[in-house]
Amino acid sequence: MGGVDAAGAWHADGEVLGAYSDGRLDAAGRWSVEAHLTSCAACRLQARALVDPARLRRLRAALIEAVDVPRAGVVERLLVRLGVADHTVRVLAATPALRGSWLLAVATTLAFAVLAAWVSRGADATMWLLCVAPLLPLAGIAVAYGPGIDPTYEIGLAAPLGSFRLLLLRAATVLGTSTLLAAAASLMLPRLGWGAAGWLLPSLGLTACSLALATTIEPLRAFGITAGAWVVAVAVTVAPPPPSSVLFSAAGQVAFATLALLAAVVMMVRRGRFEADRGFDTTPRFAARRLR
């Protein structure tokens, strides 16, 4: 079986390989072919004739696709599992605010709020968290979209995907992430209770409000104004002792839920305006963020 080349080395010929492939060789023949194939490039190429070219092409294409497409992170896979479109997930994953630095800042802030609660241990234990948590998504969204923040902002402006849709997608990602983190922080408070979740509706209301405002003024300014308004509202309404605020009362919560709904309506009505401004904006030259 096989043949010997000019240098005296044994090679499997097409006939032997065919017999091997069809299972017509005995054990010794099989083994020598297998051992030989792993080390002999010339004989490996002969094996090509034994495989359906269409099958090789199909496998190759599937393989190239699998290798090109980035391995999705856990969150990305989960979102796809939940039925979110693959392209939407990719856009979400590119949210600049989702980088480690922002997550770290949010986690640190929340950790301090929880720490403060444990130190004071009094009736005001939850106040820090309640006041700080609604600000986090605002800060996050502010660093999620815009010139100088999003590296592809300039290219994005010249692309047909609506900028408001992009902003909303990013806002949803940031809001989702910070809400999860704040919820985790709430569970670590010394005294659990529904009061510890008092930040949720204000957080939603403020985010919606700032997005609605962003249809009229610069997004960054919109987030700043909303955050400022919240700080003032907290400062004015907190009444010691023991510290409490009408903002976290039942009436306050209803008010924030209403605010969120109203802002959502405004957003939907005015989104076209945002597209018109942003997409075709008149801001001065974009300062590209350079690569480190």
Partner: peptide
């Protein structure tokens, strides 16, 4: 042009394709 530096060339162009 700004780049998401942690993207591969493929990922980056794919991202713009989505936009």
């Amino acid at each position: 042009p700004g780049f998401h530096a942690h993207f591969t060339a493929f990922e980056f162009v794919d991202y713009v394709a989505i936009l």
